[in-house]
Amino acid sequence: MALNGATIDRLVLAYAAALAKPSKADLIALHVVEIDWTLPLDASVAGLSEEAQRVLDVAEAHAERLGLHVEPLLLKARDVGAAIVDEAAAQEADVLVLGLPYRTRFGGDFVIGTTVPYVFKNAPCTVWVVREPMPQEGA
């Protein structure tokens, strides 16, 4: 499952847990830190470290409460979608679960972003996308 630190992560974890639990499958929690092209890929990005680690730590703690063990994996890459797909291939994943926050462009159309379409096109395995519920009117 790919996590991005947003509130949708909980839903992603819940669905991934529901998938993994019956078959006792391994759960890998993946978070990708996108590195700007102006920086070398192996550069130390101190400001991001704690925040990035926290995304996985929070997921790990939540999984423990659900009685599950997750293997956290933190990546740095130029492109989040490519890193997710490549890691899924390397790990020989059966299912990839992603979260999709409900965002709109200037309050208009729903925006799907670039990561999800990339994963849809290139993932070597089944892909589940958990879209965040639409915010209620006036919320």
């Binding site: 990546l75 740095k76 890459a77 130029r78 490519a82």
Partner: peptide, 9 residues
């Protein structure tokens, strides 16, 4: 060009 680095925890 798709490269990634696994980070230590």
């Amino acid at each position: 060009g798709d490269r990634r680095v696994r980070l230590e925890r």
